[in-house]
Design a protein around this nucleic acid. Structure first.
Lengths: 342, 342
DNA sequence: CTGTTAGCGCCTTCAC
DNA sequence: GTGAAGGCGCTAACAG
């Protein structure tokens, strides 16, 4: 067995032609006889030839591949985003490699270096919650490699492409919704404030309180590390501190779920005693009862749009392209079960 | 700006040494002076050098990368499997590239070819539901590239490594559980029978019926294409055919959810009127009420074990390694809310 | 410890 | 329409 598989040389030898002819034939070059082409393809199939993309990409100095970096694919929002990315890249003929930072900046760094080293043609990234600066992303700009942020981006990266949700407005809508249900004392589980999206969600929370003349109390604003356990613990903490809350607005979905589980475990009724509201697009949440109210974000759409933007940039490589920020809307999902019966 | 980024030659020139010395220094070879090493690293950093892995891998004829192929990462079981895979590969120093077949055989073929062309060191695969034969996977065996199936494998691939759940037993347990709750007429939403796991789940279903002297009725066994919509439609179909079922055992989770949604929409009480049972490891299902009973499969564990097995094979490359099949157990999750109150 | 040389597999001028 | 030659960036002998 050959070590590195069949090469174009083996095919060339077998057919008594030159390797360059084989290469041309395999690439469907117009400057090669139809008959030779057929022979080459037949021989390639017979020998079980598989093009060595490492060599090809090295030669071409491009990989026809898009790198995607996300905190974790198990977050439903992100996996639906990736579905949208795959959709857009598939039609454009790009391959996609997906990597998870696991919310770990060092891991994100490693991934980014690896993508660069593999000469991806462009990168889509939703940064980890530990990512405060964009210094590890400078290379892309310096080397003219297209980069698009989606959902989460870090603030101090100027002049970059972004596809985002209007988080301030969505949060504002969500809290207004809770207030309209009669909530007077609403806690907020915020996300890491180095990320714009969580900062904006908090801004929306504050604006809704202000406009409804509800006092902002910092004791009710707690930091979640975006895990289910956080929602559990923070709720416990509030209850044990005897805070009389009747609503929770969580900046992320799993913390909201953690909150609900804890509330149920201590016999609180949702939404009668406490309303819970979280960002989410989990389809499964529809069967939850008592239900989680949600701000729906279409991950699929976002992925598709972000990927199209990236591909556009890849194709225009060389030309100076202006950075764009695309803001998508999200909507409140009202469910019967979230109506309070007081 | 240089086209392909900084190379070792630029570093070598700058320092007045040879490129091979730079290469050695960058690879922390022991046969290079500490002082040179330091200079090289400093220069590399200063110039913003990024190793070209395409070239390196081409030269080494390996990529230090594991390819993972799954139907869809949005299935929670699979994303937790991937988390396990990343865990195991991270400690072993391998990179991971994840690809989704979207349950489409042609896409799976394309992905497999791409992995081969990129010279991955090994592959972990859970096949698409359209995959009946393993012909597109022959290349791996022929070229001695380690391959491990997990969860789903196709039957006619002999002599291969597999990490599976004892699906027959799990299904048997599940149906027994329903029977113990008083169900007498249990429908089964089976998966594509070209996949062993769904075949085995059906076998377990049949065995449980037989041992409990319940007649097997083929009208109650319906094929799901593994989408939520299928569960919805199949349930509707049964109800409209006036089948008097009091239990549903679904071979996959989302179809069970579809069934529940439909049942609720027509006013059926779960589990009082109809018990629903599905394979799942969705953590979110814990807050569903009326709850879905589940057979729990630890995706994380499976991913870890499968990846360790693969890495073991990669490291033993050259030696003849026996194929192994590892069977994991799964357990029934009982929930209060699944108790019928009749 | 460092330099020389060669080649991984492919593609692309440049000839003919 | 095809062959010859060179090089993408890196590493692994082999010298010295």
């Amino acid at each position: 067995m050959k070590k590195g598989g069949i090469t174009i040389y083996e095919i060339a030898d077998k057919l008594g032609v030159d390797s360059s002819t084989v290469s041309r034939a395999l690439n469907n070059s117009s400057r090669v006889a139809k008959s030779t082409k057929d022979k080459v393809w037949a021989a390639a199939k017979e020998l079980g030839y598989q093009r060595n993309l490492l060599a090809s990409n090295l030669r071409m100095n491009k990989s026809n591949t898009i790198g995607v970096v996300v905190p974790r694919i198990s977050r439903h929002f992100l996996s639906s985003t990736i579905a949208g990315i795959e959709e857009a890249s598939y039609v454009a003929g790009f391959n996609v490699v997906i990597s998870q930072s696991m919310e770990d900046l060092n891991r994100e760094r490693r991934i980014v270096n690896n993508l660069i080293s593999n000469r991806v043609d462009g990168v889509l990234i939703s940064v980890s919650m530990e990512t405060t600066t964009g210094d590890h992303l400078e290379y892309f700009k310096e080397n003219n490699i297209p980069l698009v942020f989606f959902d989460r981006c870090c603030e101090n990266v100027t002049d970059s492409n972004k596809v985002l949700i209007d988080d301030e407005q969505a949060a504002y809508d969500a809290v207004n919704h809770l207030i309209s249900k009669g909530c007077k004392s609403i806690a907020h589980f915020e996300g890491p404030q180095n990320l714009e999206i969580y900062k904006k969600r908090r801004m929306g929370y504050k604006r809704a309180l202000e406009e409804n003349k509800i006092k902002y109390r910092k004791e009710l604003v707690l930091i979640s590390r975006l895990m289910e356990q956080d929602g559990h613990n923070l709720t416990k903490q509030l209850i044990e501190a005897n805070e009389t809350i009747d609503g929770i607005f969580s900046a992320n979905d799993v913390s909201a779920i953690g909150a609900m589980k804890y509330l149920k475990s201590i016999g609180k009724r949702i939404p009668e005693d406490i309303c819970v509201f979280g960002f989410s697009n989990e389809p499964i949440s529809e069967v939850i009862e008592p239900s989680l109210s949600t701000v729906d974000q279409s991950g699929f759409e976002m992925g598709k749009i972000a990927c199209d933007l990236l591909i556009d940039n890849i194709n225009k490589k060389g030309e100076k392209v202006d950075s764009r920020t695309i803001i998508l809307n999200s909507t409140i999902i009202e469910r019967e079960s979230t109506n309070r019966k007081i």
